[in-house]
Simulated assay, not measured.
Amino acid sequence: MVLVGCHVSIAGSIDLAVERARERGCDMFQIFSRNPRGWKAKDLDQGTADAFRTAVSASGLGPVVDHMPYLPNPASPDDEIYDKSVAALTGELRRCDLLGIPYLVTHLGHHRGAGTEAGQERVVAAINRALTDAGEGDVMLLLENTAGEKNSVGSTFADLSRILEGVDAAERIGICFDTCHAFAAGYDLRTAEGIEVAFGEVDDRIGLARLRVVHLNDCKGDLGGGLDRHEHVGLGSIGEEGFRRILRHPGVRSLPLICETPVDERRDDAGNIAKVRELAGA
């Protein structure tokens, strides 16, 4: 058996996401806890948080994963953007704690020409500030590998390792592995050899124990093309055989798998979840 789900909407009320996940056949699910396209977030009241916790408990689904909104850029050399990004990360850690969500996934952003090393230093400082300002909690922050876009931070597992080494609270940090991003950054996940190279690098540089969640997305672009465009599982450049091999890797099979795939006339969320189970032999 695999533990698979998708990203679901919180429209109307955050607790409604639980039923949406159940309808799609999820074992677990991912959300944005707030509007992902703005800086400001409406505060969560205790009643809303309690309703969410109750719905999750009654559903038997989990773990729940929260994702940072789109605008924050913790690698930014712009002090105003940087400070707003740290505040957003701090706030999201607190929201997860209130909601009882164990994992918060974050992109690491873009250094905007300042250089990879400078971007990494900004990210490390941002994470350390946010974890301190958020206070003690049970939320683990998961750093997501990026797709190798221009000026991006965290496209290789060596990059992620250097950031992890700089974080003070090591026990509060893990990794989210995105298959589309890894392929776009040059990791060939179509072959058994390429998969071993990718996860071998994770193990050597970071440790597989720190890999907590997988974003299971096919890729619309070419290998190493730097294109962050998700495709239905098996219908993109990685393909069905690639995902069969990925889903049989011991470093993946026992982890929560989240599809962040399109919804169109070819397939919906339930269809991608069913395809993952089929390819996994579950």
Rank of each mutant, 00 (worst) to 15 (best):
G154Q: 01
S155F: 12
S161Q: 10
E171M: 08
G166T: 07
A170E: 15
A192E: 15
T156D: 07
I163M: 01
I173Q: 06
A169V: 14
R162N: 13
F183Q: 08
A170R: 15
R172E: 04
E193S: 11
E165L: 14
G166E: 13
F183T: 09
L164Q: 08
T179C: 09
R190L: 09
A169E: 15
C180S: 14
A192H: 09
G194N: 04
V167L: 03
F183E: 01
A185F: 07
L160H: 00
A182G: 01
G186R: 01
G186N: 09
T156K: 00
Y187G: 01
T191Y: 08
G194V: 09
H181I: 05
E193C: 10
L160V: 02
T179N: 04
L160Y: 08
S155T: 08
D168K: 13
I175S: 01
L189V: 02
C176N: 13
H181L: 10
S161E: 09
G194F: 12
T179I: 13
V153Y: 07
G174I: 04
T191P: 04
I163F: 01
G194L: 07
I173G: 00
H181D: 10
Y187R: 00
V153I: 14
I175D: 10
S161N: 08
E171S: 15
D178T: 07
A185S: 11
E171G: 05
L160D: 04
S155P: 00
F177A: 06
G154A: 07
R162T: 15
I173E: 08
I173P: 00
C180A: 15
A170Y: 13
E165K: 15
A182H: 03
A192R: 14
E165M: 12
F177N: 10
F177H: 03
F177L: 09
T179V: 09
D168E: 15
F183I: 08
T191R: 04
I173R: 00
E193Y: 12
D168V: 15
F157K: 03
R190N: 10
L164F: 09
D188I: 08
V153Q: 02
D159P: 05
A170P: 06
V167K: 05
T179W: 13
C180D: 12
A184K: 02
C176R: 06
C180Y: 07
G166C: 11
C180V: 04
A170D: 14
A158S: 13
L160Q: 00
G174Q: 04
F183W: 11
